[in-house]
Design a protein around this nucleic acid. Sequence first.
RNA 1: CGAGGCGUAGCUCAGCUUGGUAGAGUGCUUGGUUUGGGACCAAGAUGCCGCAGGUUCAAAUCCUGUCGCCUCGACCA
Length: 479
Amino acid sequence: MAKQQKMVEDITSMEVDFAKWYTDVVKKAELVDYSSVKGCMIIRPYGYAIWENIQADLDKRFKATGHENVYMPLLIPEHLLQVEKDHVEGFAPEVAWVTQGGEETLSERLCIRPTSEVLFCEHYKKIINSYRDLPKLYNQWCNVMRWEKTTRPFLRSSEFLWQEGHTMHETKEEAMEETMQQLRTYEDFYRDTLAIPAVTGRKTEKEKFAGALETYTIEPMMHNGVALQGGTSHYFGTHFAECFGITFTGRDNTQQVPHQTSWGVSTRMIGAIIMVHGDDNGLVLPPKIAPIQLVIVPIAVHKPGVLEKARELQEQLKGQFRVKLDDSDNSPGWKFAQYEMKGVPLRLEIGPKDIENNQCVLVTRHNREKTFVSLDELPQMIEKKLQEVHDGIYQRALENLKEKTSVATTLDEFLDIAQNKPGFIKAMWCGDSACEDKIKDLTNGVKSRCIPFEEEHLSDTCVCCGKPAKHMVYWGKQY
RNA sequence: CGAGGCGUAGCUCAGCUUGGUAGAGUGCUUGGUUUGGGACCAAGAUGCCGCAGGUUCAAAUCCUGUCGCCUCGACCA
């Protein structure tokens, strides 16, 4: 893409300091504010509106595949968390505890949910008795808390918002199908709604969710080549169900244990949107989730007829698009910069000259392209331009993903790339987690992202130890 | 948890070395002129100098403690 002139001086350039750029954008676009508790963020109206649009879209997809929403408690008694050993070991280091109620010390500590597997299990034990009760396809939208040591708004916060689906099935096949279906739902959502391309696949043994038999993941790449675990879908087998004593009477009148899945995405996706699409002028929002899809900026507001025309357009368009008219006294230049910072995909400029000619100017955020449009065909053109933005930013992100994906067949090559070229590295792997540890040590944090569903054959041997290769793995640093 | 940085106006920060009336820019309010890439003029309002002790005639400034936040590491289903 052609380099744009940077016009917003308040935002640190991506090239200069990507981390600083990120926090500048988050604050300047008025998505969040810091609170007085470390790692807990205030999600401001503009940021929350993005989340609401994400929720609405995903929720529709979940319901279309038969899922129902429920709400589980915030607190988990300690004994319940400890029922499954791997699970508690995985989460124990980062749970927050409630130890006191009013003036009384509690006889048992209560954990603030870091995830709700055990709560769902406890409930499922009560309500699943027969194969006729299956499948159970529950989802909840809620907050969770993980006591993180390093926090960043959206990417890793102590408290965050998410959805967690927890399902129970009669057979392994059915549960596996659910696991894959939900991963595909995430993939579709990332591509069609967020305009974000990603690599999908299976996590290695080492990177699996605590207690899961298989973890599938969607891994988008940020603009700077760093990966973000963008969503996961887990197959649990019957292990949790066994620990919790969940059984049902099968079609053949034998007692059986159901197969379980869970899957989730969080407000972290907003971090992905920022880091995949954003530029030096601020946020760039995918049109489908942008709280404002079109901002109308009247030029020379006080000249007769201008404001009236702008209002007329707003009225005409508001049923079809999310439209804002900025009729404030700020200068047009200020407004241009302001809404670019906030990532509004489309800007409509209308001034006295345009009104004379029955036209207006449409400007697309991601490339600042200006088009003169007749007012007679405005709605169709807006529709078209919004699609152009969606396709444009998807394409740009896809090119970035391709450009920043390398292949390594030897360890030297791998280390050289890890050192000098940020992004994903495709390389063969023997299947031994010792090699994952070694690579992580040698590269200052490069980990296996996933084993893709369609593996390429790059070479015969493991890039690390030289033993026969079992899989092709995507490697990379992550947030 | 380790290393560094920072707490002064809504925001960004100066002032601290060498103790002596609390500052600037920006934002905010009012009025006017402007308006196709962050406009200009004028007038105004805005402070527990993070918190608690101490030294001193006198502390934003020096000393001790404490709390919090940020960044980078380590950790991170």
